[in-house]
């Protein structure tokens, strides 16, 4: 089970690196927003799996709060890009 955990951490952290690279060199503003959206989804899965890795039940609430609230930020930036807020 330990080997699977480290494989998962390696893949997710390399994926976060690609998303940060897209935030750095995206030519337009929606590109950067796509990178941000990918990073929030990866982070939610990482938080749930770290809750399993530390074996605590209470830690999963953070992932629940993050999954609800990251939606508001992305939709507000998208509405700003569209023109009316």
């Amino acid at each position: 089970m330990n080997i699977i955990s480290y494989i998962f951490f390696t893949f997710v952290i390399v994926g976060t690196f690609f998303a940060i690279l897209r935030i750095y060199l995206g030519p337009t503003a929606p590109d950067r927003l796509v990178g941000m959206s990918t990073m929030t989804t990866l982070t939610t899965v990482l938080l749930v799996f770290l809750g399993y890795f530390f074996n605590r039940y209470v830690y999963i609430d953070v992932a629940l709060v993050y999954a609800i609230l990251s939606y508001i930020g992305e939709v507000s930036i998208a509405r700003y890009l569209e023109g009316g807020i």
Binding site: A29, R32, L33, M36, G73, I77, Y80
Partner: peptide, 8 residues
């Protein structure tokens, strides 16, 4: 806007 996304 870049700065707002990066601060997130």
């Amino acid at each position: 806007l870049k700065a707002v996304i990066s601060s997130g």
